[in-house]
Design a protein around this nucleic acid. Sequence first.
RNA 1: GCCAACUUAGCUCAGCUGGUAGAGCAGCUGAUUCGUAAUCAGCAGGUCGCAGGUUCGAAUCCUGUAGUUGGCUCCA
Length: 637
Amino acid sequence: MSIAVRLPDDSLRPLAEGATGVDLAAGIGSRLLEAALAIRQDGRLSDLKSPLIDGAKVEIVTSKDPESLELIRHSTAHLLAHAVKRLHPEARVGIGPVIEDGFYYDFWVDKPFTPEDLPAIEAEMRKIAGEAVEVVREDLGRDAAVARFQAMGEPLKVEIVSGIPSGDIISGYRQGDFYDLCRGPHVPNTSKLKAFKLLTTAGAYWKGDEKNQMLSRIYGTAFHTQKELDEHLKRLEEAKARDHRKLGKELGLYSFHPEAPASPFFHPKGTVVYNELVTYIRELYFKYAYSEVITPQILDVALWKTSGHYDNYAENMYFTTAEEREYAVKPMNCPGHCILFGSQKHSYRDLPIRYADFGRLHRYERSGVTHGLTRVRTFCQDDAHIYCTPEQIKDEMAAFLALLKEVYDTFGFEGMRVALSTRPEKRLGSDEIWDAAEHALGEALDEAGMPYTLNPGEGAFYGPKIEFQILDALKRPWQLGTLQVDYMLPERFDLAYTRADGGEGRPIMLHRAILGSLERFMGILVEHTAGAFPAWLAPVQVAVLPITDRAHAFSAEAADRAKALGLRVELDGRNESLKAKIRDAQLAKVPYMLVVGDREAEAGTVSVRHRHRGDLGVQPLGDFLEGLAAEVRERRR
RNA sequence: GCCAACUUAGCUCAGCUGGUAGAGCAGCUGAUUCGUAAUCAGCAGGUCGCAGGUUCGAAUCCUGUAGUUGGCUCCA
């Protein structure tokens, strides 16, 4: 008996019955056998050692295959667990999946692993890889698997396997004395794992549930070659160098202090950037017909009970009492806007009404979740609420999408992705209302021709939402904008408008933001630009650098003229060398430097240096200043 | 909130197994007047996060606490 499989070049290859991918690869060539990691039969990835199916389309998977990286990482996770079991036989294994950029493995140990433990474990991994231990699939019935893991003293594995229906076949893999539950596939032997690194340790709950056992997690990554691994580690370094917490301190933008945990102090330079962002959004609000309002910071608790925040969000709110009356510090602007809307009679002719608010918000975030500027306890959103009729939702969405695109384009963000989040478990309102709201958003997106993904159960408690995600300069995704439909608050605040027929209509409320939190946006922007803000945002837009004292008078004149044009200029009159002044201006990421020596002072010119483009040559002072003023006015990138 | 690590001068960091704190940069003073990423010299600067404890003696060991960091979890 013999079988035949079809190769990618469409040729048929006859093989003996029971032949595996190993036989196939070996038959084609020893180089291929060496490179082979797995096979794909009729589109399904499986072990190199799995038997070939007669008539199947088969390809040998090598490192060139995109899916093979996942395979390598998964096998490396097993290698990690194998090494840990050798060094720490008492450790109980959890799970070890592949994640973006690497893998992790969870262990139940008395003493959690620390970074100091990693070199020894990594060395053991290299040892096992060097031993070229065969990786063999061993399938077991459910009950046999439970028995085996019980015998091995692996309670977590027993728990997983026990959750699988009795009678099912469970796949597992053995490499030497290590056996693990796994769907596979895996590399044929451990020598295929050549480029890996353990990165960090962390605590993690079993099954991600805080009520469960805390396990010790080891993170690592793996690649096909050392070169790819090195490049990845270099990228990590680059991201670290752009960390907004580090750059914010270095550039003197903001700082954090124990007196107000997770709450930024914006220094003068950071405040310039912050205010420029607000000014920009304000200008767009004028263009897009929003009305800015200012509402109180502290409001009666009764308001938050009406809005539903008290019941759903109290654990994240700050409370205060005065004259025996209980107040809450606002965690969002919406209820205040509802009071505003309800304070007057509205005609259908007035709608939509768009209230924008840069009010400061406070939310109590649990101590472990705060992070630099991206997760803080006090912040401000480019927040606005639109009150409109059901018929106006689509137009409002279209206008918002245009606004959103304009803003993201200004900052050079690309690759926008859109997600529609639907009803969560903890929510207000009837299913009928949710049906209508979810439908309205989906339809509007369809009409705008925007592809989107669904996030079931991720909506806000008062309504479904659309989230807009962009990619920064390092191609990292960030969620910035959001648009949420809210049928609940108008109901709870009994908001109304007079319809054309004289009857009363209930407005629909749209919550929307483009940048999200200004604090968080600033952090993202710092990482996106590596601190080199475009001229319109730069805290110092131009530095004047006199070479000698003789150039001081003209330098001062240059600075004054820049200031008269509204430019943020700094005159570096220190008794330092030109080299030193340039270095300091470069490190401060000042976009333009004007070198002024005897020649320039004499001719009324400046020698222009750009932080990235270097020496741009000599220009008349007036020409340069006008050019820069235009660059700033147009908010060029 | 949970697990772990970290916290020393304004900043970045040294400080071996406990013997009573050190560098570079920044700052100040002086000299130097200089052409596209650090001129030279001198001076000054710290209750070693905070509170207890062990010890003849604590930056160092122990306990507690705060903040930060990496994760978990959460995220209107």
